[in-house]
Amino acid sequence: MGLDFSVVPSFADALLIGVLWTIAITVCAALLSFFGGILFAVIALYAPWFLRLPFRFFAWLFMGTPLLLQLFLIYFGLVELGIDLPAFVAGVIGLGLHFAVYNSELIQTAIVAVDKGQMEAARTLGLSRPQALIRVVIPQAVRDVIPPIGNNMIALLKDSALVSVIGVSELTLSAQLAIGRTYRPFEFYAAAAVLYYIINLGMEAVLRRIERRTQLSR
């Protein structure tokens, strides 16, 4: 059985819808991982010990185990708890939390590294410690780690393929559905690879732009 790419165009619509879902899940999970990462960093650094210690334990557990395993835990765990979430939401939560933990590690380091004078200057103006953190320290910390967070987001895009195993009908699953009808795995996985590659390029371009826009505020 040789290769025959002529079957691919007839599934173009299905694949493009898959692309849109992949972009949607990546954007949603990226936002969750970004804001979740900030929240987790604040918890890890400033929360009272009874929040901080369990949090650090779970962060350690999440950083030492595969995303796929975590997706199974979240997907089946929610079912077990009687929470019936659509696969898309479960996928966003799984991907988003996984990368939030990684982003949180970056942001924690950056928060600690912000010049002490910044906190002092904010406090001498009369800002409270939480106000100074929110207005002065955290924005600078986040700005400092935009490039590595961007790398995490690129990894997130590629890892979004994993949510196909819990039934999110994104690009990988769209390709699989087409394969189920045509029995042409090579052609459709190759097509999916090309589409991922293009999304990846687009995402890198967007991230470069964001990096450039934050240049001045250093």
């Binding site: 590629k158 890892d159 979004s160 393929a161 994993l162 196909s164 990988t172 390709a175 394969i179 795995p185 090579f186 052609e187 996985y189 190759a190 999916a192 690879a193 991922y196 590659y197 990846n200």
Partner: peptide, 13 residues
């Protein structure tokens, strides 16, 4: 591209 797609391409394709 995703590692998962690469593995599928190799194994199934």
């Amino acid at each position: 591209t995703p590692a998962l797609i690469q593995i599928f391409l190799l194994y199934f394709g």
